[in-house]
Design a protein around this nucleic acid. Sequence first.
DNA 1: GACAACCTGACC
DNA 2: GGTCAGGTTGTC
Length: 268
Amino acid sequence: MPELPETETIRRDLVAVITGKTIQELRVLVPKLARPGPEIFCLQLKGRKIRGLQRHGKLLLFELGKEVLLVHLGMTGALIFRSSEALPPYTHIVFYLDGGKLFYADPRRFGWLEVLPAEALPRHPFYASLGPDALKVDFLEFEKKISGHKRRIKEVLLDQRVLAGLGNIYTDEALFRAGIHPCRRATGLTPEEKRRLFEAVKTVLHRGIELRGCSIRNYVDGHGNPGHFQNELRVYGRRGEPCFRCGTPLLYTRIAGRGTTFCPSCQR
DNA sequence: GACAACCTGACC
DNA sequence: GGTCAGGTTGTC
């Protein structure tokens, strides 16, 4: 579900309503999602004040003073703030704050939440493996990170160790806008193509945030409402349909285990 | 690299 | 019944 723009939309929604609030009580309904385990999870979080909410790639970081809470939304995770009791479907964890509730809902349960001491964050295996945030890199760093890989460019863009935040939708959309075939080797991209790709990545991510995320299936923002980027998709989910630019039927293939849609004529 | 695994649901 | 799905990890 959530790539960088969806995660950022949720972050902005939540910052406005939970900053300064205290976790008074919590309920864990699906133990395996609460790391390192449900007991420690509750013990460490109860009574903590939410000082801030950061994001790195697709990862959310709740700043709680001595502790930090990491939340990865996986494929279908959602964080929904409500003042009413109404439990969203597939709610697995509930945070009772002073003035509202924060629900973690996730039909497929691929997401996870983990509490750890703030000083241990730099050694956290997942956090430490992440490359720079895709929205924050400048061109020089972008070029440095994606160059030198023999792999196909789509694989490289999806690799969170290279850049953090791009997922399947925004990768396909960026490659289309840059006019680059997803099977091209990263090594073989010309400086001009890298520049176009950099600009395309920034454009789709910013536009995704502007439209509050892409709700094709499950995604909802921090208040449970869908986003609108799905109305601006040019290739993702359009296999077999005519390219908006040249009319050629869009092709579908599989790269790094992910469905990939592209225009064989516009993307070279 | 390709593929299965973790899960549940939607769609043909 | 089979296929596919905004992610990540671990195995041949």
